[in-house]
Amino acid sequence: MTRLNDANQVLAREIIGRYPKARSATIPLLHVAQQQNGYITQEAIAHIAELVGATSAEVLGTCTFYEMFKMHPVGKYLINICTTMSCALMGAEQLVTHAEQRLGIKAGGTTPDGLFTLERVECQAACTEAPCLQANYRYRYRVNAAQLDQFLDDLAEGQLDAEIPAHGVVARVRQSIPVDRAVSVVAPDDVHEAPVWMPLSGTTA
């Protein structure tokens, strides 16, 4: 079964419940699916389409627009080396070449043991710390060849398991809105008046 499992369906309902329109939960739910399976399966897309009230084709369209969603299995660790300008100025290409040699794959490929997928990616918002990379979206800054080797070793040996979860897990801390604090979701078509704290004039809330 690569649809969302029971626990994730509960989570999915909670997430959908935060939005005025279920469709808005599409991307968060795709993340949930990717966390569950490591990548996005067709069944998961169809399931999410059911949950948010879209067609599978529409969810597929959304899914393929965004780079983080992988339609095929990738390595346990996705190593993303930034090659945009700031990192390129500081030697990102050499780092990619080194990583390719070290892992024995070309950027875009996955090692035969399924541990690493190497990607050349665009700016990661760490430009002052170039060249930088992310492993499953956890940063390593100002990386040189030796540090990269060490890092890959540590990952392979499981030394960084506490810091870097397997691919698909983005945030380990999730928002949860306590029921007694939640304001009801404001559906766009149901509300036509100003919120109560917006007095016509003068007084404060």
Binding site: R18, Y19, S24, I27, P28, L30, H31, F65, Y66, E67, M68, F69, V170, A171, Q175, I177, P178, D180, R181, A182, V183, V185, P195, V196, W197, T204, A205
Partner: peptide
């Protein structure tokens, strides 16, 4: 939320609002 800064009747006032964290996915 737990401390009453977000959600229903913030700090005892009539002001109520939810803040929802949304994930992007790379674009």
């Amino acid at each position: 939320y737990a401390a009453g800064y977000i959600g229903r009747n913030i700090l005892g006032s009539k002001f109520s609002v939810d803040i929802v964290l949304h994930w992007g996915a790379g674009a």
